[in-house]
Design a protein around this nucleic acid. Structure first.
Lengths: 195, 195
DNA sequence: TTGATAATAGAACGAATGTTCTATATAGAA
DNA sequence: TTCTATATAGAACATTCGTTCTATTATCAA
């Protein structure tokens, strides 16, 4: 049996296209995607999605997804139910990129090696997002040069005294004698489980 | 003094527009963005970016960023230098969305509460990405219902015996008597530091 | 200076865009 | 059945798209 066209289904089709091509399909392309034979039918459904608040048009009349629609559901605390395919989720935001990377031009990713921040829950193999030009505050996690090597450390500041501390008791506190070389401040930690 | 147009600068301008509007600007819009007065000049620069491998055209002749260009640099191990603004970085990939979320239609985010997985480096307030329909394997982290509450646990499997284990010695091992309700498998952990 | 190259401007063009109209087909209620 | 609302098709349209051409200006080396 053939699938009926519903708002949800059309949304998924367009979202899939967007994720794959990083752009919206044209009406002509949607004729194929939605399996219809006329642009006016596409127009018909697009208007439905706009009315439903899933799509929107910007100033130039260009089509784009609402933040709501593009986000994957965020669940605060898991109760009896999980977000199902059909139901609307109250959850907020977000694209991972937007959520994690505030300043893309001065950020970079670093793969963690070593266990100097193990008690902070940062483990070997994790990715950290580092912001280069950021001014570290007391307690921030920074990338610092220690004995010619770069490692992750807490940045501590006490009465004009600056020192570095690992989140692992087996590493000593570092009190820099002269200059302290910092590579940036850690703004996020990412761990992916590979199955 | 006015800024000279360079490939890098044009790339940044277009990338900024893309990030903000989730789409490529048209040539007409780029006239304003690049501060020129003719579409042919835009055409001239776009071709430069294409030659440089920063932009590309898909089958329909649509403009899009190369994966290379869109990614933020990934540094394996930090050596003497950090990725600077101008230099090219060898690092691979990635958009966070693409990297983290393989199946957007069956994934959701969950904010972690409690300390049941603390020894795994998953802490209260972290976000975990959960894949709903995934079949858990031995050692995977799953969302499971225990005593009417949902928590994170290791999924263990030994000789047809299934049980749940916390990454925290203060929680006992769970050996389900009858049915075991699972909400999904954790595929990634995300922690953002708010400054 | 002169000469050569790179960069910019402007106009013209066919192709593709989204919109709008009329007409036909389908489905459910009365 | 008939009536009504919904869904689909097809064509026509003005607008915008990216391309291509010629011409002018800026840059820099010889």
């Amino acid at each position: 049996m053939k699938e009926k066209r519903t708002i949800k289904r059309v949304q998924k089709i367009i979202a899939a296209f967007f994720r794959e091509n990083r752009r919206m399909p044209s009406f002509a392309e949607m004729i194929g995607l939605l399996d219809v034979k006329s642009k006016s039918v596409v127009h018909f459904w697009i208007n439905k999605l706009i009315d439903a608040g899933i799509l929107a048009k910007d100033g130039q009349g260009r089509l784009s997804f609402t933040k709501q629609a593009f986000a994957i559901p965020l669940v605060g605390s898991v109760q009896a139910g999980f977000p199902s395919d059909e139901e609307e989720t109250v959850g907020d935001i977000l694209s991972m990129d937007e959520y994690l990377i505030t300043k893309p031009e001065s950020s970079f990713l670093l793969q963690v090696s070593g266990d100097s921040m193990i008690d902070e829950g940062i483990r070997e193999g994790d990715l950290v997002i580092v912001e280069r030009d950021k001014q570290p505050r007391n307690g921030d996690i920074v990338i610092a040069e220690v004995d010619g090597e770069w490692t992750l450390k807490y940045f501590r500041q006490q009465e004009n005294q600056v020192f570095l501390e690992a989140a692992n008791p087996k590493y000593p506190v570092i009190r820099p004698k002269k200059e302290l070389r910092l590579g940036g401040v850690v703004t996020a930690v990412i761990r992916k489980y590979h199955h």
